[in-house]
Computed example of a mutant assay.
Amino acid sequence: MTTNLRHHRIMGNGVVQHYVTAGEGQSLILLHGFPQTWLMWRPIIDRLAAHFRLIVPDLRGLGGVPGPSDGYDKHTLAADVKAIVQAECGNEPVVLCGHDMGAYVAFAYALNYRSGVKGLITVDAPLPGTTFGEQIMSNPRTWHINFHANADIAHMLIAGREREYIRYFIMSRIYNAGAVTEQEVDLYAAAYSAPGALRAALEMYRSLAKDRELNLSSLQKDGKLEMPYVAVGCSMTAVEEVLQGMVDEVSVNGSIRIVEPSGHWIPEEHPDRLSEIIIETANRGRQG
């Protein structure tokens, strides 16, 4: 990595938050998922820093400071991100890209701060409140969703075995096994072994039922999203008509991209292609 990274900590939305910035230009927010941190975006930071001012947060409880016992629904996490955006760019509209759990936060942000979003990209994430989101809950491949949502038992079984669990979790959903290194697994294991971090992540899963209700309420009250929206899927699991159906449920200006060959970890497995999709979506937002 050659891009100059700047690390920040602020008190925002009642919690201490860590985030990284790089580059100049239109602000692009990159939001990580489970079981990762801001570090997952390193493969595309160099590619995107020439086009954007990147703002790359750790989600609540995963930035080296234990999070509170509550506030892990994605609309509260979106308010965390909004506090960072306000500190960095004031009222400037942003582009958002989220992977996995971070995609749920990005979607909640877009629902809550519609005029402040120029483009939205969600990466391999079935949005809570959509038909696809409901179907995925009973898919054997996504056993982890219900397991993690039982946060107490999941914490008891994973705590102390973070590295083994994270390595299995990543490698069982990857196409290019070399895209995530053992050294990166070490970094994620250290992050999730920190006080409160694993609990914070599991609480994000426990809150998915609340996320569903909040998302549906927002769509009913304010209608579908109007900014450019792209849902990115991986070729290992994505079904085009299902993914397009999800997009059509929540957006009037949405489309899909299937990245192949790829597993769940698209930012690491195909950083060039994902960077192209982000730039394309941002350009559409500028024209709108």
Rank of each mutant, 00 (worst) to 15 (best):
F169Q: 08
A194I: 07
G12T: 13
Q183D: 09
K221I: 01
T37Q: 01
K221C: 02
E249C: 07
G25M: 00
Q220N: 15
Q244H: 09
Y229C: 11
T2Y: 08
V16E: 15
G90S: 05
E213F: 12
S218T: 03
L243P: 01
D152P: 10
A159W: 03
E134T: 14
G223D: 00
G67C: 13
A78N: 13
W265K: 03
G196Q: 09
R60M: 07
R6Y: 05
K74A: 08
H18Q: 04
V180D: 06
A125P: 10
K118W: 00
L96I: 15
S275Y: 08
L219M: 13
A83L: 06
V242E: 05
V20T: 12
E162S: 07
M101V: 13
R114Q: 05
L225F: 07
G196S: 12
R9F: 06
H32A: 10
R47I: 05
Y205M: 12
V259Q: 09
P93F: 07
E88Q: 15
P228D: 04
A201C: 13
G233V: 07
Q86P: 00
P271L: 14
A282W: 02
I145L: 09
H75K: 14
L54P: 02
Y168D: 11
V247M: 03
Y113M: 02
A78W: 10
N4E: 15
G23W: 00
S193P: 00
R141N: 14
D70N: 00
S218W: 07
I153S: 11
R199M: 06
D46R: 05
R141W: 04
R42W: 04
T142P: 04
S251K: 03
E203F: 03
L39K: 04
S27D: 07
A106D: 05
V81A: 12
D70Q: 12
G129S: 01
V250P: 01
I258G: 03
E241K: 05
Q86L: 10
E134P: 00
E268T: 15
V56P: 11
L157H: 11
C89E: 11
L111T: 11
G263Q: 10
A149D: 10
E280H: 10
A106I: 02
F147T: 07
Y109P: 00
L39C: 08
P261S: 04
R161F: 12
D211C: 08
I256S: 02
G98V: 05
E162M: 13
H8K: 09
A87F: 05
R206D: 12
S255A: 14
H7N: 14
A49S: 15
P68R: 00
V232K: 10
L157I: 06
G90M: 05
G98Q: 06
T181S: 15
V230D: 03
L243I: 14
P267V: 04
G263A: 07
I166T: 09
Y175I: 09
Q287D: 15
D248L: 11
G116M: 06
R9W: 08
N4Q: 15
I55Y: 01
N176H: 13
R284P: 01
E260K: 14
I145Y: 07
